[in-house]
Simulated assay, not measured.
Amino acid sequence: MPSYIITVKPSASDSELAQIKQDILNQGGKITSEYTILRGFACDLPEKHYSTYATHPSVQSVEADGVVTTQ
């Protein structure tokens, strides 16, 4: 299952954020990390549900999660 980082818009309420996370769980996904600096979280999400969150009115961005390195 692909991993994504989902951030919500600053205008999204705490209840909207909680609902998005619950929807992901209901669709067979898994929340793997929650962030405090960003208003968002990392999750494993069935690929067929990607577009649901990429176009969600409260979501700012959906990005593939991966390893980041520096030189």
Rank of each mutant, 00 (worst) to 15 (best):
G40Y: 07
S15A: 12
D23Q: 11
D65G: 11
F41W: 09
A54E: 00
I24H: 04
T69K: 15
R39N: 10
T52I: 09
F41L: 06
R39Y: 10
V59A: 04
K21W: 10
P2D: 01
C43G: 05
P2S: 04
D65H: 12
I31L: 06
P57S: 02
C43H: 05
D44K: 13
H49Q: 02
T36Y: 09
Y53A: 00
F41R: 08
I20E: 01
T36S: 10
T32F: 09
S15Y: 06
I6S: 06
K48D: 15
L38D: 07
G40I: 02
V62E: 01
F41M: 05
A64W: 09
H56V: 00
E63I: 10
I6V: 08
A42R: 13
I6Q: 07
A42E: 12
E63A: 15
Y4G: 04
Y50W: 12
Y4V: 07
L17D: 00
Q27W: 08
T70K: 14
E47Y: 04
Q60A: 13
A42Q: 14
L17W: 03
P57Y: 02
I6A: 06
T55D: 11
H56P: 03
L17R: 05
P46T: 01
S13G: 11
S51Y: 06
Y53S: 00
T69G: 12
P46D: 00
P57N: 02
K21F: 13
D65K: 13
Q27K: 12
Q60F: 14
H56K: 04
I31K: 11
A12G: 09
V67P: 05
Q27M: 10
L25A: 02
Y53H: 03
T36I: 10
I24L: 07
H49V: 00
Y53R: 05
Q19T: 04
L17I: 06
S11K: 06
I24V: 06
P46N: 02
G28C: 11
T52K: 12
P10F: 10
Q60N: 12
Y50K: 14
E16H: 08
T32A: 06
I31G: 01
N26T: 08
K48V: 14
P2E: 01
H56L: 00
G66F: 03
Y4R: 09
S58T: 01
I31Y: 03
D44A: 13
E63H: 15
P57C: 01
S33M: 14
S15V: 09
S13N: 05
P57W: 01
Y53Q: 00
V68I: 11
E34D: 09
A18I: 10
V68L: 13
Q19P: 03
E47G: 08
S58Q: 02
E16P: 08
T7Y: 14
Q71V: 11
C43T: 05
T32K: 15
F41G: 03
Q27N: 09
Y35A: 06
T70G: 14
I24Y: 02
G29L: 02
L25M: 05
T52P: 05
V62T: 02
E63Q: 15
G28Y: 13
E63L: 13
S33T: 14
S33G: 12
P10S: 08
V59P: 06
L17C: 04
F41C: 04
T55Q: 13
D65P: 08
V62A: 03
K21N: 11
E34G: 09
V59G: 04
E47T: 07
I6G: 05
L25S: 03
T32H: 12
